[in-house]
């Protein structure tokens, strides 16, 4: 981490406050995400994790105070898989609405193989299970070149082998100078400094 400490941050949140339905979810939350950081967002159900994630990536634009600066492109994976049932996994990735890259066929095949969908490239997605839909979505992690990943519950509906493959990919990303902000109800099994982002305090190691 020390070698990247001098580079500019990938994301800066400045005194974010959010009140919903008369209840204060967080107040004056300020932090920076730098290259090499693996940050897990802590909080119970309804604590405002997803709200914070949506503010960070820029989907929520009203109803909160504070500013978020995003100098780096962000890859965001939310609760919804963003997978079209009438398109094959290959088409889903090649024509993805996020429009961040043009991928070759082999790149897409490799990514799908990484998430365990080898042989499913050209099957219509409506024939796949919910877990496989999520895997199609996770294949974007193997294609994207965005330095910052913001992941909302990436482990949901993923089986054990998938979880460990995903953990390995997260590790690979942060050790190559990327950064990850994520929420998860599972404890992460990675050999890396895992930092916690608390809604009432900011980032703690």
């Amino acid at each position: 981490m020390t070698d990247t400490a001098h580079s500019s941050p990938l994301l800066v949140a400045d005194s974010l406050s959010l009140t919903r339905g008369g209840r204060e979810l967080f107040r004056d939350l300020s932090f920076e995400i730098n290259a090499g950081q693996l940050v897990q967002l802590e909080g119970s159900n309804g604590a405002g994790k997803t709200s914070l994630i949506r503010i960070l990536v820029g989907l929520s634009r009203y109803g909160f105070d504070g500013t978020v600066t995003r100098p780096a492109p962000i890859l965001y994976l939310g609760h919804l898989p963003g997978v079209k049932a009438m398109l094959s996994p290959r088409e889903n990735l090649a024509w993805h609405a996020s429009g961040e890259g043009t991928y070759s066929d082999t790149a897409i095949e490799q990514a799908l193989q990484q998430v365990g969908l080898y042989g499913y490239e050209d099957v219509p997605s409506h024939a796949l299970s919910a877990g496989q839909h999520r895997r199609v979505n996770l294949a974007r992690l193997y294609l994207s070149s965005c330095p910052l990943w913001v992941l909302d519950e990436p482990f949901a509906a993923i089986d054990k082998s998938g979880v460990s493959a995903l953990e390995a990919q997260l590790l690979q990303h942060v050790s190559c100078g990327g950064a990850v902000v994520m929420t998860s109800h599972q404890a992460l099994q990675v050999d890396y400094t895992l930092e916690k982002l608390r809604l009432d305090g900011g980032i703690v190691s």
Partner: peptide, 22 residues
Amino acid sequence: RSDFEDGSLEQLLLSPQPLYLT
């Protein structure tokens, strides 16, 4: 509607492409 329901719309809004043209 279908893009809204399956989350593609979120991705479209976050994309680096000009929303006007998309």
